[in-house]
Structure formats: C-alpha cells, structure tokens
Amino acid sequence: MAAVKCKGCGAQVWTKAGACPVCGAKPSRKAKVLAWVALALIVFVVLKGVFSGEPAHTTAQKSTPMDVAEGVTASQSMPELSSGPAPIRSGALDSYTKATHPKIYAKWGAEGAKKIEAHQKLAADLIATSGRCDAVSIVGLSEQRSSPPSNIVVFVDCENGQRFYIGPNDLGSPLKSEAERALNKESAISICRDSVRAAAKFPSSVNFSAFGTVAETNKTTGGTSVYMDFESKNELGNLIPQRATCVFPVSGKPELRVGSR
C-alpha cells in the first residue's frame, strides 16, 4: 500500500484512506495513480535485483578481461613460464687445482686443468640452453672417457635426472642424454632371453616364468637392466629355479649374471 502527501496539510495519507486524518481533506485521484506507479517501480527494481543475483541499488556491469585476470591472480597462482636458459647452480662447475684434485692435476698439468675448466663451462652453457634441462646441478670430468692432452669429456647432470656427456666433438652436434641412448626395454628382454638360453647346459630345457621378468632403465646413466626368473635342467636332469640379471650399459659390454633363487 502506497502513501501520498496531503495537498491540504502536507501529512502522509495512505491511498486507501478516504480522507486525511489530520485535516480531513480527500487525496486526489492523480496523486493516488502516481503513488501506485512509484510503488510498482520500486517493486520491479527489487525483484530484478533478487532474480539477477545483483544488489537492487547497483547497475549490472559486464566483466572485462582485466577483471577476470585479476580474479584469477587473486584466487590461484599462475604457472611461471621460463623464456630463458636453465639456471646453472652455484658450485655446479668443478675447479681443478693441485689442492682439490691432485691426481687429475698431476696427470693433466696446469694447462690441462685450465682446458678442462673451460670445456666444462662450454658444456654447461650448451646444456642449459638446450631446452632439455631444468637446472644444471653438477658438471665434472669423466676420467674413464678422457685422456690428456686434449680428449676432454665431461658429464653434465640436470636436476630432472638427465645426464649428458660432452666431448670435444659434441659441442656442435645434436645432443642426446644417456637415457635417450639407452637400449629399449623390449630389445633388452629379447637379448637377455637369448643369452640365457645360450649359456644354459640344456638350452631346450629353459622355461621362463610368465611373471618373473622386469626391465628398468636408469634415467641418469642410461643403463638398462633386466631381471628374469627361469628354470633349466642341470646335469642330473633336475629343473633348477634360477634368476638371470642382464645389464646393458650405454657404453661398454653387456653383462649376464645367473644365480639360484
């Protein structure tokens, strides 16, 4: 129910009242109509606010891309995208002095030590900018693969477990980590089975366990190992349960070990 202003005394009079309770004047028809229109507008605005989920006293505003971005930033952390090279951790590069590496220093000499350190820096920069290393953690001389005066091979280890060997001819060639150079597991299992049969006294008697074969590749060294359960006959004709271990390094000769289980 709406109220109007009495034109006689100015008091508020309900539209349904026949006359003003103060002065007795009757409200005009026009005032009643205006009062009902005003009441209808108020009800419309309130209902619009309720059903649109917005306050009735505010104007609806569309979200802008800036509003959305700000809301996302406030509610969750955005992933960091690296556009530059991977970091080289402090202390990752080794220093070859008479005090720190006396054997290597004696073998390579002062000039050789400087060459090793220079090659380390080039190798670390190469891997850091390759896009395949999260962070360079360790760089060092591979003594087994290196020989003075100029055959310098260093290994570069990344925090994601990848290892790269960089020799004097690798700085300008396509890079492969040790894991990428590894023998695949299917081939390793097949070769291991053939090796077990060849090493058995009675190859035809070899019976491999259906669930006793496991193959794994070391992410850092790239070496693939196969563990295989089997049975084979001995000299007396008895079936003996055995286990074979086949190791396939990236560089070097594969190894077969067989023992009882």
Results as ranks from 00 to 15, higher is better:
residue 100 T to E: 13
residue 121 K to L: 12
residue 187 S to E: 15
residue 106 A to H: 03
residue 210 A to G: 00
residue 230 F to H: 01
residue 27 P to H: 06
residue 68 V to M: 12
residue 233 K to R: 15
residue 39 L to H: 08
residue 16 K to G: 05
residue 202 F to D: 12
residue 59 T to I: 15
residue 59 T to A: 15
residue 245 T to P: 03
residue 161 G to Q: 09
residue 95 S to C: 05
residue 188 A to C: 09
residue 48 K to F: 14
residue 200 A to H: 04
residue 250 V to F: 05
residue 180 E to Y: 07
residue 27 P to W: 03
residue 247 V to A: 04
residue 58 T to A: 03
residue 91 G to C: 09
residue 184 N to S: 05
residue 86 A to S: 13
residue 231 E to N: 14
residue 119 H to Q: 09
residue 222 G to H: 02
residue 89 R to D: 07
residue 191 I to L: 15
residue 11 A to S: 12
residue 29 R to I: 09
residue 243 R to E: 08
residue 8 G to S: 03
residue 147 S to D: 12
residue 230 F to T: 00
residue 251 S to Q: 11
residue 257 R to F: 06
residue 127 I to W: 06
residue 5 K to I: 15
residue 108 W to E: 04
residue 175 L to D: 04
residue 156 V to Y: 01
residue 200 A to L: 02
residue 73 T to R: 15
residue 167 G to L: 11
residue 105 Y to L: 00
residue 88 I to V: 14
residue 100 T to K: 15
residue 134 D to N: 09
residue 160 N to K: 08
residue 257 R to Y: 06
residue 162 Q to W: 07
residue 105 Y to K: 02
residue 109 G to N: 08
residue 126 L to F: 01
residue 81 L to D: 10
residue 110 A to L: 11
residue 63 S to V: 12
residue 85 P to Y: 03
residue 169 N to V: 11
residue 18 G to H: 06
residue 208 F to K: 01
residue 170 D to M: 06
residue 135 A to T: 07
residue 40 A to K: 03
residue 162 Q to N: 07
residue 70 E to Y: 11
residue 99 A to V: 08
residue 19 A to C: 04
